[in-house]
Simulated scan of single mutants.
Amino acid sequence: MLKLSYKKLFKKLIDLDMKHNDLMEKANVSRSTFYKLKNCENVTTDVLLKICVALDCDISEIVECLEENEC
Rank of each mutant, 00 (worst) to 15 (best):
M1A: 13
M1K: 14
M1T: 11
L2N: 15
L2F: 12
L2I: 12
K3F: 11
K3L: 13
S5C: 15
Y6G: 01
Y6W: 09
Y6F: 13
K7Q: 11
K7S: 10
K7M: 13
K7C: 11
K8G: 05
L9Q: 07
L9G: 04
L9N: 08
F10D: 01
K11M: 09
K11D: 05
K11P: 00
K12W: 08
K12C: 03
L13Q: 00
I14T: 11
I14L: 14
D15M: 02
D15R: 13
D15Y: 10
D17K: 14
D17I: 10
D17R: 15
M18A: 10
K19D: 00
K19L: 00
H20N: 03
H20M: 05
N21H: 12
N21M: 11
N21Y: 12
D22E: 12
D22T: 05
L23A: 12
L23I: 06
L23C: 09
M24F: 06
M24W: 04
E25Q: 05
E25R: 10
E25A: 02
E25S: 02
K26S: 06
K26V: 05
K26G: 04
A27I: 08
A27V: 06
N28L: 08
N28I: 06
N28R: 10
R31D: 05
R31H: 13
R31K: 14
R31G: 02
S32M: 10
S32D: 01
S32C: 04
T33L: 07
F34V: 00
F34C: 01
F34Q: 01
F34P: 00
Y35R: 13
Y35F: 11
L37K: 04
L37M: 02
K38A: 06
K38H: 03
N39Q: 11
C40D: 06
C40E: 04
C40M: 08
C40W: 08
E41Q: 14
E41D: 08
E41S: 12
N42A: 01
N42W: 01
T44M: 11
T45Y: 09
T45I: 07
T45D: 02
T45V: 09
T45R: 05
L48A: 01
L49V: 08
L49M: 12
L49A: 07
K50M: 01
K50I: 03
K50D: 02
I51L: 04
I51G: 01
I51Y: 08
I51C: 00
I51Q: 04
C52N: 06
C52Y: 13
C52R: 12
C52A: 07
V53E: 14
V53A: 14
V53Y: 15
V53H: 15
A54N: 05
A54G: 00
L55F: 11
D56S: 06
D56C: 08
D58Q: 13
I59E: 04
I59F: 13
S60D: 05
S60G: 01
S60N: 08
E61Y: 10
E61K: 15
E61T: 07
E61G: 06
I62T: 06
V63E: 03
E64L: 09
E64K: 14
L66R: 15
L66H: 15
L66I: 14
E68Q: 09
E68V: 07
E68M: 11
E68W: 14
E68D: 06
N69C: 06
N69F: 06
E70Y: 09
E70D: 05
E70T: 07
E70C: 09
C71W: 08
C71L: 10
